[in-house]
């Protein structure tokens, strides 16, 4: 991501206070960077430059290392997520039962690709590797709510039900 194209940071003083507390908690703990990033993402929803910089300064770790860790693990996000986070399981059990078709149907319905967020900020799509709900394969989640035994049609219906709630 180019420096110039970074989205505007809208952190609040309250969030900053929470982050400072988190940093203080993990400051002298061996290997404290990962838990700090996890909790920071919990506070802000993603890990923008400003947040990573505060973490680097607070923990006394080079920013390059913080950024390196944040971009290594797939659960850390550098961009804000949608209000509703859709996640389609692409674990093997779901895949052999057609999870790829479900993902494609949702992408088509929302007009975005996996990893992207709709322009109105309402939805973002991710894929994940096995939620462990293989008995219900194929599975997708919206905001953590599990929808099992999906078909492309039923998945799109689920999305639409969230859409109608918004209007």
């Amino acid at each position: 991501m180019d420096n110039e194209n970074r989205p505007v940071f809208r952190g609040t003083p309250k969030q900053e206070r929470e982050l400072k507390k988190v940093i203080e908690k993990h400051k002298n703990q061996p290997g404290g960077l990962m838990p700090t990033l996890q909790e920071a993402q919990g506070i802000y929803g993603y890990l923008p430059y400003e947040v990573q910089k505060m973490i680097a300064e607070g923990l006394g770790v080079p920013l390059s290392e913080v950024y390196g860790v944040a971009t290594f693990y797939s659960q850390f996000s550098l961009t804000p997520k949608g209000e509703h986070r859709i996640s389609v399981c692409l674990g093997t059990a779901c895949y052999v039962k057609g999870a790829d078709k479900i993902l494609a149907a949702i992408e088509e319905r929302l007009g975005i690709k996996t990893g992207e967020c709709t322009p109105d900020g309402l939805f973002s799509i991710e894929s994940c590797r096995c939620l462990g709900a293989c008995g219900l394969a194929p599975v997708m989640t919206v905001d953590g709510e599990v929808y099992g035994k999906c078909t492309p049609e039923s998945a799109v219906k689920v999305i639409e039900s969230y859409l109608s709630k918004e209007v």
Partner: peptide, 14 residues
């Protein structure tokens, strides 16, 4: 990072 402890560059993504 290690020799100079400057850490201006690092690995990104995977």
């Amino acid at each position: 990072d290690k020799v100079q402890t400057v850490g201006a560059i690092g690995q990104i993504r995977r």
